[in-house]
Design a protein around this nucleic acid. Structure first.
Lengths: 336, 336
DNA sequence: CTGAAAGCGCTTACAG
DNA sequence: CTGAAAGCGCTTACAG
């Protein structure tokens, strides 16, 4: 059953049928009522493909994340989807594992589907040329992390640098002077800023505090390995506190500590970043820096919509506040 | 740049251009090579909306889950998406919170978008009529739980009943005779089967073991409240073991136990269901029943694809094995 | 306020 | 092996 059918049933032409259903101006109230009624009666379902072809856009947006199983992305995705639903848009989910070829292939595919825009966690795995290419492909793109270089991308993310600073402040205020920081691979802008904020703060206000930075995969496994290595080195003098670039890595540290009998926070304080749901459920409950994941997702979608309607001129950037969530994995070691 | 443009550039008509790009038979090798080359050179991107309109399908499938933030669904979604990617399909993500109106509205929207099929975690929140309606709406649907009644749905899920039995066996074998089971709201077929398997096994082989079943939200909060209530009742004689219908509820029990100073497994053994990633990270690491979430998602997609190509005749049903993952939250209380 | 018509960009019998 | 043509189901100026 097509528009044609309802037009026939209503005794009008397909043009006015279309106008009636789309609530356009310039159609008699009775006519419209009749058309609407006929559509309902015939259980008419407009073909969005046809509409999309005619109008030039599909009302769907693409969401490319590394892996939806990462609770951080799941939360962001929900924010995106709720906002999209409210705006009458659908979202196409893509998992890239941050692999360049998969990212590129998704972008091609989304463009072919004529999406209105794309939300994507990062483009840092792509070459400069590739970045340029997708930035100029015609559909607006908003990134979930800050981006230097190619400036046509919009961004929506937390104030990562401040998060790093807050973590440092918390640790320093509790008397810690031998600090360690576990971070992920180089190219993650979000993580890099956390590191920067943390390290700078320590160097500036740490009264001679020292901090060493180690990196691994930004997963529970990554944190586990780093911690395992650290704990098995009985000779060195351990840090009194570790700041991990995300909660997942902190979970890995906790597991390693459990296995090696290292008490947290007795022997070692630990602070994470993200505040995923399970941060409050592990043992000990994890002190961490909360970032508003859901809101970031929702905001990313709003930006996209604005970019679409405004004809995508200047990119837009949105930064979100972070806050310390103090639980049980850190403690004060003030001497007095 | 449209097909027309590449046809022009290649000096052929749009028909052969189309055929060349779609690898259809009956086009001269040189002609095709030329067309392909032109397409590449012009950076041609086919308009999938137009193609979809012409062919009648879109190559996208809809995935409707309660909430992607639930790690179980995230894992399933990844399975779906990987399989879809491999098959050249895209997936549209929808979060329903199991609300009937939201589910229905998504289904309408997906049908309007001419998806090839829909994967959906449950239809039990819908009325009989609504179920009938969507079962006969023309697009194949596969459910992520078993379904009685309307039989046109395909299904892909774990052997939940067996999972319940395994949990009972494990507990009984370890000497537990006073058992408790926390489950979710009534209409979840997956959970109900777990309960059935558990209870039946206990009654049949429990040598007089007793089991009480309590229900709440199937979330960490739900488990928390139930446990809190139980723990604060100092008068009654507690169970020696609890089986929760999923890991989330078990996490809630762990939190309550931590707060109230109840030792797990010292005072109380605990076994969950799902084996989500964090089951191994909480304290104590959770003994649970593993179900192959990723594979279930992938299988659901395969079923859908088969239903599409075969013209969606008979529904298809697929059940997946489960297994006990023994960690630290259960212990033997054999007297001898 | 309504209709006739062109067009969106593809696919696919049907001829040749 | 290739072309001319109809059709997929809508929208939207343009007339009236």
């Amino acid at each position: 059953v097509t528009l044609q059918d309802v037009a026939l049933a209503a005794g009008v032409t397909i043009s006015t049928a279309s106008r009636s259903l789309n609530n356009a101006y310039g159609v008699h109230l009775e006519t419209r009522a009749c058309v609407v009624e006929c559509a309902r009666r015939l259980n008419y379902r407009p073909n969005r493909l046809a509409r999309g072809l005619a109008t030039g856009h599909s009302n769907v947006i693409g969401l490319i994340v590394s892996d939806i199983r990462n609770p951080y992305f799941a939360e962001v995705a929900r924010g995106v989807e709720d906002a999209a639903y409210a705006a009458g848009r659908d979202v196409m989910l893509c998992n890239s594992d941050l692999k360049p070829d998969r990212q590129l292939s998704y972008i091609e595919s989304l463009i072919e589907k004529r999406v209105d825009g794309i939300i994507m966690n990062s483009v840092s795995a792509l070459t400069r040329n590739e970045q340029f290419y997708i930035a100029n492909c015609g559909v607006p793109i908003v990134l979930l992390n800050p981006h230097t270089g190619e400036s046509r991308f919009s961004t929506a993310c937390a104030d990562n640098e401040k998060g790093g600073r807050i973590a440092a402040e918390h640790l320093l205020a509790n008397g810690h002077r031998r600090l360690m920081h576990f971070t992920g691979p180089k190219q993650h802008a979000n993580l890099t800023l956390r590191t920067n904020g943390f390290v700078k703060k320590v160097q500036k206000f740490g009264q001679g505090a020292e901090v060493t930075v180690l990196s691994a995969e930004r997963t529970s496994e990554g944190g586990y390995h780093l911690a395992k290595q650290l704990f098995s080195d009985r000779s060195s003098n351990w840090p009194t506190a570790i700041f991990t670039a995300n909660d997942a890595m902190a979970f890995g540290v906790i597991r390693a500590a459990m296995e090696m009998g290292v008490s947290i926070p007795g022997k070692l304080s630990l602070i994470g970043f993200d505040d995923v749901e399970l941060a409050g459920l592990v043992h000990p409950p994890l002190t961490t820096i909360r970032q508003p994941k859901y809101q970031i997702g929702a905001a990313a979608l709003q930006i996209l919509l604005r970019r679409v309607s405004s004809g995508a001129k200047e990119p837009e950037h949105s930064t979100f506040g972070v806050e310390l969530v103090e639980r049980k994995s850190t403690r004060s070691i003030q001497s007095r």
